[in-house]
């Protein structure tokens, strides 16, 4: 079952990319396993393993919900506890509860299997509302801007996306616009070397917008398919730094009015309800096109993302499940919701 799920998911990214341009052929196999890791578990397995670390607890708790003599209120309270502990937040939890309450109260849901299935279905349904094709086949090239607060994993994510796209036959280029954090430019440089992807860098302290500008020029000259722009981490409350991000975007647009074609906000799965504020502020400044959830190989489930989707209607593009550059997969609502409730 695991295999079939994974296969379904990988063809989906292929769909997404192919929808954009029929001329580009996508090697599904290579997305499935961009760098061959035959002996290692599949990415889906790894995601599942990560999620099930707590979903073990999650599912176990759900199993316990229909204990002997438990009243409907108790059952619903228990479900509330489970969802809130997955960081779904009070509002989203309430909304999901409202949907299962009548079913529990009228005994249409009488056991935990039915309850889990219902919750999974609701979550998958909501997440499926926000799936849209990635714009990665633009001419002359696609520009992807990557933003987020400090420490969420932007640089690693940039490298991982580069690797994934390169495996589908796309020629990538990185722009290291984090000229603020010590070592950031070098970090992306090392990734570029490992992946054999050219990196445009500025010097430390250089105006990041000017690095983006140079990168746009370079990408135009060289035959690049996708330019991935990594930016410095900044808290969404730092007005000046948020303005700086706006400036980077304007510089890109001056070069190519339709760019950046994709603007991703990277979110750390362990973040609590503050992620909603983050997404709101970054969206306001940049008009995001998608979210990337990182560190899903830990125990955190990133449930806050439901609330964000609900409010901003943004698709989740990728999920990060480890530190290696192969540890990234296109997001798929079905396998995600499945993995969320999978038992060990």
């Amino acid at each position: 079952m695991v295999f079939s799920l994974f296969k379904k998911k990988s063809t989906r990214l292929a769909d997404q990319i192919e929808k954009e341009s029929e001329s580009v052929s996508v090697d599904t196999q290579s997305i499935l396993n961009p760098v061959t890791e035959s002996k290692e578990e599949s990415l889906y397995d790894r995601l599942k393993r990560g999620l099930s670390r707590t979903s073990g607890g999650l599912v176990a708790s759900l199993r316990g919900v229909f204990g002997q003599g438990a009243g409907h209120e108790e059952i619903l309270e228990e479900i509330e506890a489970i969802l809130i502990q997955a960081d779904l937040g009070v509002k989203t939890t309430q909304r999901l509860l409202d949907q299962v309450r009548p079913l529990v109260e009228t005994n249409q849901i009488r056991d935990s299997t039915a309850l889990i299935e219902k919750l999974r279905e609701l979550i998958q349904k909501q997440m499926s509302l926000h799936v849209s094709p990635l714009k990665l086949n633009e001419k002359p090239f696609s520009v992807v801007l990557i933003a987020g607060i400090n420490g969420v994993g932007k640089t690693t994510t940039t490298a991982k996306i580069g690797n994934l796209l390169q495996a589908t036959g796309k020629k990538c280029m990185f722009a290291a616009c984090d000229t603020f954090r010590a070592g950031a430019v070098e970090q992306l440089g090392i990734w570029g070397e490992r992946l054999n992807i050219p990196v445009i860098t500025g010097s430390e302290g250089q105006d990041p917008a000017s690095v983006a500008f140079e990168a746009m020029k370079k990408a135009q000259k060289e035959d690049i398919d996708v330019l991935l722009i990594d930016t410095a981490g900044r808290l969404h409350t730092q007005k000046n730094l948020m303005e700086e991000l706006g400036k980077i975007q304007r510089v890109i647009q001056k070069n190519m009015p339709a760019a950046p074609h994709e603007i991703f906000l990277v979110l750390d799965s362990i973040t609590g309800q503050n992620a909603v504020h983050q997404a709101r502020m970054f969206h306001e400044m940049l008009k995001l096109t998608g979210l990337v959830m990182t560190k899903l190989d830990g125990t955190a489930k990133g449930g806050v993302v439901f609330g964000i989707q609900e409010e901003l209607g943004l698709p989740i593009r990728f999920v990060g499940v480890g530190e290696k550059f192969t540890d990234l997969q296109p997001f798929d609502p079905q396998s995600y919701s499945q993995a969320l409730f999978e038992e060990n």
Partner: peptide, 10 residues
């Protein structure tokens, strides 16, 4: 991280 969610405890 101050922004850590429910998992902070674990």
């Amino acid at each position: 991280d101050s922004m850590t969610g429910q998992e902070a405890i674990k």
